[in-house]
Design a binder for these strands. Structure first.
Lengths: 153, 153
DNA sequence: ATTGCGTTTGCAATACCATGGCAACCGTGT
DNA sequence: ACACGGTTGCCATGGTATTGCAAACGCAAT
């Protein structure tokens, strides 16, 4: 199928490190889930990812994908995306970026702009140990603007 | 401007205006849902709000609460909170604020700090018509820091 | 390479969240 | 007061996420 000639990918190496660190066995399923997620540029749901993983491991269970994604999110290998919809979505950890979210249809797009990447994190007075941030810009996507254009604010 | 008589609550008045504007009947259920949401300072789930509304209208249906919240969110009277959990959460529209989110347990707290309130919105080149934004700071809450303190980063 | 242990996986069943259809009800304008 | 259209409540349905347990697997010691 795919050419295996390419090197391992930095994130897979990182996965090996993290699995060792947390004493987690590095199974074929875990590898496949991470690869499938990193091959995507959007914010797939669990079922979408399941479809991708089945290409690599046809007999993989949906439950397993659920569990692996949850585990990875806990270890901060991937990120569970904040989305107002009722289904869980994930994304691989890439560079810092932000999200454009349509209030009406739920469409979500990435936004990368250095202007927003230099904020200073809140201090310890919040009670939280903040590691990262992401800005959610909310509004209307192009399609919804077109279909809602008359109602003024 | 400071002399705003607190008789009815500004948001209820706003609700009446918006209902008229969109030709929506202003029912007792809609009033109760909005009041219940504004009485809370957190980010309640639909069921949590349903419990509150039942105090005011004992025979209200859970389905109705679902529908009203969805309608209000569409009209931008309230906001559907972005939360990685699988259940929908809402908050009443207040001033611009941001969220501290625990990656581990899902706890969510508001953060209000003028430092983060002066960002310029992305332009039309994004294809979106942005109205507002909110920053999601992600990390560990105090409890989870305590229970995860050994794993070095 | 083999063995043994603890973890993970897969399957099925279950719980839970959210939505849709339909008759009765209620708010609104006349 | 009346009639109309939208809303509500109930029930059923669809879909998502979680749980328990036997079998399979990864990992490390032998």
């Amino acid at each position: 199928m795919a050419t295996v000639s390419r090197r391992k990918g930095a994130a897979i190496e990182r996965l090996e490190q993290l699995c060792r660190k947390h004493s987690l066995p590095l199974t074929a399923q875990r590898r496949a889930v991470l690869e499938a997620l990193q091959a995507r540029l959007d914010h797939p749901t669990v079922d979408e990812l399941w479809e991708d993983v089945r290409v690599l491991i046809p007999e993989v269970s949906r439950t397993t994908v659920y569990r692996i994604l949850e585990t990875f999110a806990q270890l901060r290998i991937i990120r569970k995306v904040c989305h107002p919809g009722a289904v869980a979505r994930y994304e691989s950890l890439t560079t810092r970026h932000h999200h454009l979210l349509c209030i009406r249809c739920g469409a979500m797009t990435d936004l990368q702009n250095a202007v927003y990447d230099k904020l200073t994190l809140p201090g310890a007075d919040t009670g939280f140990e903040i590691e990262d941030y992401s800005i959610q810009f909310s509004g209307l996507c192009a399609e919804c603007v077109a279909s809602e254009g008359h109602s003024r604010k």
